[in-house]
Design a protein around this nucleic acid. Structure first.
Lengths: 214, 214
DNA sequence: GACGAAGTTGAATGATCATTCAACTTTTGT
DNA sequence: ACAAAAGTTGAATGATCATTCAACTTCGTC
């Protein structure tokens, strides 16, 4: 009887502990990811240190190694977060009953030019990640997954109307154009204008390319 | 008489000294720029130190501050060198008597996909510079000049056949597409294939855009 | 309220790096 | 051959930074 009670209460206690632990864990992780994105946007990945992140999050420096195993782990988690955000925007736009190739392409383009994606926070961070991923396998793998996903989403839409070769060509062109507008806008003096024009001109290209194949 | 001789010899001496000095100076500067590009390509801008550069150039670490005033000065000089190379390739291709808009656009595209430009050395370095220029005004200024030059060269060619608005749109699209193929190729597992396809698809787009306006 | 576990701190450590400059070597002019 | 100038070296310096961990605080449980 007593043993039974002890065991039960121990189980309850443990599960409560685990729940609390993971909740706090998730909160801290999110705080730190957010702070690191802000720091990267403001200071650049180059000048972002464990101290600029932890101070911004209102936490101590040691906590980063505790939750992410080190600075590198946090940086990769931040990139994963940006990619997840992009994927979420896209899924949301594709599941609103739109099915025509034009609508599908528009949704993809819009997802890549979301308010969030065009924020300083996102643009500067993406660019920093792009550069560093050339020399860090962990980041490079993530970038390649992301690039491949954009391309294959676009290609699928084009292939609904175009033959295989034309779809491949158009998809590569549009994917490059999207990334190119991103890059040029991020580097320009007036990023917002660049993004607006980029969204318009990408849609325009998509329409033209679809029309040509018919 | 004696005084006259002294003055003359002093002038000769000085001019020889200056000639020798600038020759050695130019040689060393070029050595160091080359070494820094190689180091950036291999290790990334992040991991490039004054030691990795100077050891690769077979010189001592102190020499960099002596000729460039510091690491930062050398990095900017290296970017200037890449930009000059690009400008030279373009000028060479445009001054071969080609005048039609198609030929002009092809020349611009080819200059951006030169063997040199698609080398690891160039791609990785450009990408590193892109990222860092967001947070360093000196580099940012240079990048903006380069971006503006590519755009206005393209726009000029389109404007020979298209009206003002169509030329602006097409130029922005093509400029973005060129940069985008660059970026995606640099990050891909098989950069050479990406560059080849990029060159072909950019030319294809340029032709289509020119044809549409007529 | 006291005990143990979970969560957090930040000073100490060791490593890396750009810059400086006094000493050294090479080149040049006579 | 020699003195002065130009060119080069690399050890010393001071600064920055990621990581570690012993000590501290907070929280949940009885």
């Amino acid at each position: 009887m007593i043993i039974q009670l002890r065991l039960t209460s121990m189980l309850i206690e443990r599960s409560i502990n685990i729940m609390t632990k993971t909740k706090i864990k998730d909160t801290r992780r999110q705080q730190l990811i957010q702070a690191s994105l802000e720091s990267i946007a403001e200071l650049g990945l180059q000048n972002t240190t464990i101290l600029t992140i932890s101070r911004r999050a209102g936490l101590s420096s040691g906590i980063i190694s505790h939750y992410f195993g080190g600075k590198q782990g946090l940086i990769e988690a931040a990139l994963r977060y940006l990619m997840a955000q992009l994927g979420q925007d896209l899924r949301q736009r594709l599941q609103q009953g739109e099915v025509s190739p034009e609508q599908r392409l528009n949704a993809i383009i819009e997802a890549n030019f979301t308010d969030f994606q065009r924020s300083d926070l996102a643009t500067r961070t993406w660019l920093s990640f792009w550069a560093r991923s050339m020399h860090e396998p962990g980041l490079q793998r993530l970038q390649q997954i992301n690039n491949a996903r954009l391309y294959s989403n676009i290609r699928y839409a084009f292939a609904l109307k175009l033959n295989a070769e034309a779809a491949t060509d158009a998809a590569r062109q549009l994917a490059a154009m999207i990334d190119g507008f991103w890059l040029r806008s991020a580097l320009s003096l007036d990023p917002q204008e660049g993004f607006s024009a980029g969204e318009r001109l990408c849609k325009q290209f998509a329409l033209t390319a679809l029309a040509e194949g018919t």
